[in-house]
Amino acid sequence: MNALDWLTRRRTALPDDQQQRCTALPTPQAPDETPLAQQRLVVVDLETSGLDLKRDQVLSIGAVVIDGGAIRLGEQFECTLHRDGHTVSASVLIHGLAPSDIAAGIEPAEALLAFMEFLGDSPLLAFHAGFDQHMLARALKDTLNLRLRHTFFDAAELAPMLCPQADIRNGGLDDWTRHFGLQVGRRHNASADALVTAELALILFSRARKQQIDSLKALEQRLKSWRQRLQGHSL
């Protein structure tokens, strides 16, 4: 895609029905004192065409809901996005999405809008959330001209904070699933990764409650203190 194509795509107005749906999206919920056992949280995982934050694209979205202290298996989101001109790359060996899968995917604006409607006003959680947050934010801005304002929590950060005895530093999802004996159906599949991350999150929330951390607001405050301690130790 050259610069002119990119600018033209950015200027393309959404159809009226999609614009109305964007306007109707709820205001995101800020972390508050709702007990963790009553909190609705959306666990998300993205598969992308690569790891370049500026050039690569979101190819699929998988998400599952935690609500009432349990994973709501009846509330799952799974979608592959259509991408023009998508070709085989090294990332196919990881996520398994062939060009034919992408060609048969859903139009990006519709896919992203459907995900935002599924998300509602809930906070988000992911493993290595910074990458997912950046890629989702860029996709929403480029495709729907929407700003992502939802709070993200990172299970990769929560796990070592809440479980220091595990002595897992800079661990990946596989490290933590092995530590807790979780079964993974299929790694690097957006829906499967979202589900196992949700299972990990429930374990972490249980550990948090034992440490008198029983809301996302309290969790956010503890994370702030933990980051400051880590920064002090690194000086």
Results as ranks from 00 to 15, higher is better:
35 P>E: 10
35 P>M: 13
36 L>P: 00
36 L>W: 00
36 L>K: 00
37 A>R: 07
37 A>K: 01
39 Q>L: 13
39 Q>K: 06
40 R>H: 08
40 R>M: 08
41 L>A: 05
41 L>G: 02
42 V>D: 01
42 V>I: 15
43 V>K: 00
44 V>S: 04
44 V>I: 15
44 V>W: 01
45 D>C: 06
47 E>Y: 02
47 E>K: 04
50 G>Q: 11
52 D>K: 13
52 D>A: 13
53 L>A: 11
54 K>F: 12
54 K>A: 13
56 D>T: 07
56 D>K: 08
57 Q>H: 13
59 L>S: 02
59 L>I: 07
59 L>V: 05
60 S>L: 02
61 I>L: 12
61 I>A: 03
62 G>T: 05
62 G>V: 02
64 V>I: 15
65 V>G: 01
65 V>D: 03
67 D>G: 10
67 D>V: 06
68 G>C: 10
68 G>T: 11
68 G>A: 13
68 G>I: 08
69 G>M: 04
70 A>M: 09
71 I>W: 04
72 R>E: 07
73 L>Q: 12
74 G>T: 09
74 G>M: 10
74 G>Y: 07
74 G>E: 13
75 E>Q: 14
76 Q>T: 15
76 Q>S: 09
77 F>P: 00
78 E>G: 09
78 E>R: 11
79 C>I: 04
79 C>A: 06
80 T>C: 11
80 T>V: 15
80 T>E: 02
81 L>R: 02
82 H>E: 09
83 R>F: 05
85 G>H: 09
86 H>S: 05
86 H>P: 03
86 H>T: 06
87 T>D: 12
87 T>P: 01
88 V>M: 12
88 V>N: 08
88 V>I: 14
88 V>H: 10
88 V>R: 10
89 S>V: 12
89 S>Q: 11
89 S>W: 06
89 S>G: 15
89 S>Y: 09
90 A>W: 09
90 A>L: 12
90 A>E: 14
90 A>V: 14
91 S>D: 06
92 V>P: 00
93 L>P: 02
93 L>Y: 11
93 L>S: 12
93 L>G: 15
94 I>R: 03
95 H>C: 04
96 G>N: 08
96 G>C: 08
96 G>L: 09
97 L>I: 07
97 L>R: 02
98 A>Y: 13
98 A>E: 13
100 S>K: 14
100 S>H: 11
100 S>E: 15
101 D>F: 08
102 I>N: 02
102 I>F: 07
102 I>R: 00
103 A>I: 07
103 A>M: 09
103 A>N: 08
103 A>C: 09
103 A>G: 07
105 G>H: 04
105 G>A: 05
106 I>S: 07
106 I>Q: 10
106 I>V: 15
106 I>K: 08
107 E>Y: 10
109 A>C: 12
109 A>Q: 04
110 E>Q: 15
111 A>C: 10
111 A>G: 14
111 A>H: 03
112 L>S: 00
112 L>E: 00
112 L>C: 04
112 L>T: 03
113 L>V: 08
115 F>P: 01
116 M>W: 06
116 M>R: 11
116 M>C: 14
117 E>D: 08
117 E>Q: 15
117 E>A: 11
118 F>A: 05
119 L>R: 01
119 L>S: 02
120 G>H: 04
120 G>V: 04
121 D>S: 15
121 D>F: 09
121 D>A: 15
122 S>E: 08
123 P>C: 15
123 P>W: 03
124 L>Y: 04
124 L>N: 02
124 L>G: 02
125 L>Y: 03
125 L>P: 00
